[in-house]
Simulated assay, not measured.
Amino acid sequence: MTTYIPQLTLPQTIFNNPALSILLPIALGTGVGYYTRPSQTKDTYRRIKNPPLYPPPSVFGPVWTVLYGLMGYAAYRAVHHGTSPLSAPSTIRDAKSGATLYTVQLGLNLLWMPLFFGLNRPIAATADLVALLGLNGYLAYLWGGVDSVAGWCLVPYLGWLGFATYLSAGAAYLNDGDLRQRKEGKDL
């Protein structure tokens, strides 16, 4: 069971507006992507050892755009419809608790790229993904009870998080937990 914490939750006005709900995670994800310097990120991705089945770098932008849009739509559906005055008290509680979880998971999601590519810490990035998987599994369950469409919108995100965890853990293992480029045995 979770608790609604207003200080850790996006404002209700965001959840009540479908465009804001959808565009906010897309804009934040895009901002973090540009903050971590896309050309350096792609160079790092090509340079490091990756596990089998890793996709080309060009896949990530479109996939994350769709996933962020789906998660934003799920947030709109669950919170807007779940907090309707006609909703049962338990539905309102689950919708609001989910809004807090959603906000926390969005923060964790946005933290992954700086951890992996900015700080070159794939083990910490993998731990972040494991936390994201747990939070979003519970969020899909919780919001699925509020609005089935919202719950199903999170399923592709969960699948991708599972795949991303495999990629991150594989990169951590294959690169000895450090993605910094080494030259003649010394860190740059």
Score class of each variant (00 low, 15 high):
residue 2 T to V: 06
residue 5 I to V: 15
residue 5 I to S: 04
residue 5 I to K: 13
residue 7 Q to S: 15
residue 8 L to H: 12
residue 9 T to H: 10
residue 13 T to L: 09
residue 13 T to Y: 11
residue 15 F to G: 15
residue 19 A to I: 15
residue 23 L to V: 11
residue 24 L to S: 04
residue 25 P to N: 11
residue 25 P to C: 11
residue 27 A to Q: 05
residue 28 L to K: 03
residue 29 G to Q: 02
residue 29 G to H: 04
residue 29 G to C: 00
residue 31 G to D: 13
residue 32 V to N: 00
residue 37 R to C: 05
residue 38 P to G: 01
residue 39 S to I: 05
residue 39 S to K: 10
residue 42 K to P: 02
residue 43 D to R: 15
residue 47 R to C: 07
residue 49 K to D: 11
residue 50 N to Q: 15
residue 50 N to L: 13
residue 50 N to F: 06
residue 51 P to E: 01
residue 53 L to S: 00
residue 54 Y to A: 06
residue 55 P to N: 02
residue 60 F to S: 03
residue 63 V to K: 07
residue 63 V to R: 09
residue 64 W to C: 08
residue 64 W to M: 10
residue 64 W to N: 15
residue 64 W to D: 14
residue 65 T to E: 11
residue 66 V to N: 04
residue 66 V to F: 00
residue 66 V to L: 05
residue 67 L to C: 11
residue 68 Y to C: 01
residue 69 G to C: 06
residue 73 Y to T: 00
residue 73 Y to W: 15
residue 74 A to Y: 09
residue 78 A to M: 11
residue 82 G to H: 11
residue 83 T to Q: 14
residue 84 S to I: 10
residue 87 S to A: 09
residue 88 A to N: 04
residue 88 A to H: 14
residue 90 S to Q: 14
residue 90 S to M: 09
residue 91 T to I: 06
residue 93 R to T: 14
residue 97 S to T: 00
residue 97 S to Q: 01
residue 97 S to D: 01
residue 98 G to P: 07
residue 98 G to A: 09
residue 100 T to V: 12
residue 102 Y to E: 08
residue 107 G to A: 02
residue 108 L to N: 11
residue 108 L to Q: 09
residue 110 L to Q: 06
residue 112 W to Q: 12
residue 113 M to A: 06
residue 115 L to Q: 03
residue 115 L to E: 02
residue 124 A to R: 03
residue 124 A to F: 05
residue 125 A to N: 01
residue 125 A to D: 01
residue 125 A to P: 05
residue 126 T to S: 11
residue 126 T to F: 00
residue 128 D to F: 04
residue 129 L to K: 11
residue 130 V to W: 03
residue 134 G to L: 02
residue 135 L to M: 10
residue 135 L to I: 11
residue 139 L to D: 00
residue 141 Y to F: 07
residue 144 G to L: 10
residue 144 G to W: 10
residue 145 G to A: 06
residue 148 S to F: 07
residue 148 S to Q: 13
residue 149 V to D: 13
residue 150 A to Y: 03
residue 151 G to A: 02
residue 152 W to I: 08
residue 154 L to P: 09
residue 156 P to K: 12
residue 157 Y to P: 14
residue 157 Y to T: 10
residue 158 L to P: 03
residue 161 L to D: 01
residue 164 A to W: 01
residue 165 T to M: 00
residue 166 Y to M: 12
residue 167 L to V: 02
residue 167 L to P: 01
residue 169 A to V: 14
residue 169 A to W: 14
residue 169 A to I: 14
residue 170 G to N: 07
residue 171 A to H: 12
residue 172 A to T: 02
residue 172 A to G: 08
residue 173 Y to D: 06
residue 173 Y to F: 08
residue 173 Y to M: 14
residue 180 R to D: 08
residue 180 R to M: 13
residue 181 Q to C: 01
residue 181 Q to E: 12
residue 183 K to P: 07
residue 183 K to D: 07
residue 186 K to H: 13
residue 186 K to G: 06
residue 186 K to P: 10
residue 187 D to K: 15
residue 188 L to R: 08
residue 188 L to C: 01
residue 188 L to D: 03
